[in-house]
Simulated assay, not measured.
Amino acid sequence: MTQDPSPLSARDIPTPRDLPLSSADTSRVMRAAGALFARHGLGNVSLEDVASEARLPLATLQAMYPTIEGVLAASLAFMDVGLHDVGYQGLRPRGWAAFDAFTATLCHGMNTPGLFQLYSDVNVVAVQPDHPAHDWLVQHHEYLLERMRQSIATGIEDGQILPWATAEEMNRQLTIFLLGVVPTWRALGERFTLESAFLEFKALMHARYATPTYLASPGA
């Protein structure tokens, strides 16, 4: 493996609250693999590396995931669920509260050393249909859009969001925001916090999409 200065370790990988596969081996493999991919790059990790990092016999790992491509796709899905659980805390928020949980998920991922770079790398290379993580990437973006849809739909039902708002439009605004905020965050470091940037972004979204009744409420 090539060396990378990313400090991401297995303990930094967010673990889902309720694992679909609830074995300790599965969690250990997913967290070990995520850390390795972040530290060494998507093409520089082998099954042997993952087995060693997860402290499992290679044969045991191969019985679970026969290929490193399978490990990559599974570990990305594992981290998606873990990040969701960090942001949502087992709750089902509605409207702007759901938007807050969604952006908390993004902030946590971006503030975890190495994890954001891993997601950035995957978003670049997995656009090719034959890439092992392509299906995950498609599902990942659909998941993000669905979270936005739920936020808007419940916000409209509760009178918090204007009825003409659409998930696609808000998602475009979020994408444009991220394209600007990420380079700034990387360049300025401690002088620029993602949390403050997201608060400013939310204020802009309020101005565009929030109802006057919601803006006048104490919790706005």
Rank of each mutant, 00 (worst) to 15 (best):
A187P: 00
A126N: 04
I13L: 11
R208N: 01
R55G: 02
L188Q: 10
G189M: 03
Y88M: 06
P212F: 03
F116Y: 03
L76F: 07
H84Q: 05
L215K: 12
S120I: 02
P212S: 09
A73P: 01
V45G: 12
P5Q: 08
V71T: 06
D49A: 13
K202V: 07
P129H: 02
L137R: 01
M64A: 15
T67A: 13
I13V: 15
I176R: 13
A63K: 02
L47K: 12
R11A: 15
P66Q: 04
A51Y: 02
E69N: 15
G34Q: 04
V71S: 12
D130E: 11
Y88T: 00
M205E: 14
C107S: 09
L145V: 06
L144A: 14
E146L: 07
G82C: 06
D135G: 09
A59G: 11
S46L: 02
H84L: 07
A165F: 13
A203W: 06
G189E: 01
P93S: 09
Y209E: 11
L162R: 09
W136M: 02
T2W: 08
F78Q: 00
L162K: 02
L72N: 05
D4A: 11
L72D: 04
R94Y: 15
G159Q: 13
V127E: 11
S196R: 14
A104N: 11
T166Y: 05
L83P: 01
A167M: 08
S46G: 04
A210K: 03
A153R: 05
L21E: 14
P93F: 07
H108T: 13
L204T: 12
T213W: 12
V81S: 08
G180K: 03
D130Q: 14
T175Q: 06
Q173M: 09
V181L: 02
P5I: 09
R208K: 10
G34C: 14
T15E: 15
Y143K: 08
L91F: 11
T154N: 08
R39P: 01
G159M: 14
G155V: 11
L83T: 02
Y65R: 12
N123E: 13
L47N: 15
A101Y: 06
T103Q: 14
I152C: 03
D158G: 10
L118G: 01
G219K: 09
T154A: 06
V86I: 15
T211H: 11
R172D: 14
I156H: 01
H141W: 13
A207N: 14
S52G: 00
T26D: 09
A38L: 07
M64Q: 15
A153T: 07
R92E: 08
H141C: 05
W96N: 07
Q173L: 13
L162N: 05
F99M: 10
S23Q: 08
A133E: 03
E200L: 15
Y209M: 10
L178F: 09
A101Q: 02
A63D: 08
V181A: 09
L199I: 15
F192R: 06
L47E: 12
W164C: 00
T154R: 00
P113R: 14
E157F: 08
A38S: 09
G82V: 08
Y65M: 13
D4L: 12
L72K: 02
L42P: 06
L162E: 13
P212C: 05
